[in-house]
Nucleic acid binder design. Sequence first.
DNA 1: AATGACCCCTGCTGGC
DNA 2: TGCCAGCAGGGGTCAT
Length: 271
Amino acid sequence: MPELPEVEVSRLGISPHLTGQQITQVIVRDRRLRWPVPASLETVAGATIEGVERRAKYLIISTTKGYLIVHLGMSGALRVVPADSLVVKHDHIDLVLGSGLCLRFNDPRRFGCWLFSATHPSADHPLLRELGPEPLTDAFTLDYLFNASRGRQQAIKTFIMDNHVVVGVGNIYANESLFKAGIHPKRAAGKVSKARYQRLVPIIKETLARAIEQGGTTLQDFTQADGQPGYFKQELMVYGRGGKACMQCKSTLKEIRLGQRSTVYCPQCQR
DNA sequence: AATGACCCCTGCTGGC
DNA sequence: TGCCAGCAGGGGTCAT
């Protein structure tokens, strides 16, 4: 679920309910997340929320008493619900708000995290300080990506999924973007021509941006008890379609593993 | 420095 | 129907 678009959609969905609200209570039901939830998390009780930002797939909740760093991992979800809503399995954390609502975190696999930072984490926190540029900003350019790729033997797919290179390109969008750009996922990043990066960079931006727009469906369902949308499934050209026909040339799509992740491509369209 | 393997965890699917 | 292997949208850490 949480690709960059989903995280951004979550941010847009929760931000209006959080900003300006006082945190009346912090409820931690299970501390066993990616890292143990620190006791310092509870110190934001009584603080007022100033805003919610996103950096890569991290959400940063700014409060008058410090910053919360939230990651959804593979299966995490954030919802704004009435504070007395029935707690279900895997509801690990609540931020109870003065409005009577609460921000509720559910995460079956517990790969997500909730951490506290006294200072703004984007520049100095170990998890955030080494991150590459945001793909949807002007910092992510053809020249940047091309220069970063020179000398790299690594497969281009793992290269564009590397958060040091560019953040937020998850497995789905790496597959889809390389297909649209006509680039074979195993090709060495350093051997892809500048002309092909010139195609790839805007394709990554467009693919992510459109998915955020589609995430609007999730946004509408946001306060409902459960919304399990499959809204970009119908747009996927290769992801999850191994063995099926290429939508462009009808060749059989190949599925391989690259960096422990399923990788699907068209051997005809992608070189 | 760069690269790849491994692991964290639960839930779902597909094969037998 | 039940059981089990394999896989899942992330990413930090460690060994090479």
